[in-house]
């Protein structure tokens, strides 16, 4: 049963993420990104990470993607403006990706094919009861330092964004 769901969610994620770059209309691209984010949340649910699934939908689908749509609609991009011939860069990016997937599929280093304990038995049973609690405890004990560093970096980024936006605004008004 869970394999069927995994197949569905995984397949939809693959298809919709290709559609994001392949579709001509930027609004349709944003919408297929929305569908993709939903199916990634579905994958989280299969892995019994309901908290992550909800946060995924709230943060990415509910806030960030709405802003994308906002910008796309305000700019009203012409369909042709979006396409530049970037196939050289694409090729450079593709080569390592192809090598990686070949290595993974052939069961080389980093593959989880033989060692699927982390998904099957592992700490799964304990976490499934209340994974919100588990995530909170792990974040504030084991990963406390990285957590604080991350929040500090985000705070700095936020202040930076406000300073940059504000300066632009006051300059344009002086003109």
């Amino acid at each position: 049963m869970s394999l069927v769901f995994f197949g569905y969610f995984g397949g939809m994620v693959a298809i919709t993420s290709m559609l994001v770059v392949a579709l001509r209309n930027p609004v349709y691209s944003a919408l297929s990104l929305l569908v993709m984010l939903f199916h990634v949340a579905g994958l989280f649910v299969i892995l019994h990470a309901e908290f992550l699934a909800a946060v995924q939908v709230i943060v990415y689908a509910g806030a960030i993607l709405v802003l994308y749509l906002f910008v796309v609609m305000l700019l009203n991009v012409k369909e042709d403006d979006r396409y530049h011939s970037q196939w050289r860069i694409a090729a450079v990016v593709c080569v390592p990706l192809v090598i990686e997937s070949i290595v993974l599929l052939s069961g080389g280093a980093g593959s989880t094919g033989h060692d699927s304990r982390s998904l099957e038995s592992g700490p799964h049973g304990g976490i499934a009861a209340d994974n919100t609690l588990a995530i909170g405890k792990t974040l504030f004990t084991t990963y406390l330092f990285p957590f604080e560093v991350a929040s500090l970096v985000l705070l700095v980024a936020m202040i930076g964004a406000i300073v940059l936006a504000k300066r632009d605004f006051s300059e344009s008004r002086e003109l």
Partner: peptide
């Protein structure tokens, strides 16, 4: 066990209907 987050998650999606309807 994430009832309220579930509601918030789907409530945040209602915005899409409005924006897309407008566009």
């Amino acid at each position: 066990n994430i009832g309220i987050l579930y509601i918030l998650a789907f409530a945040s999606l209602a915005a899409y209907g409005i924006i897309l309807g407008g566009w």
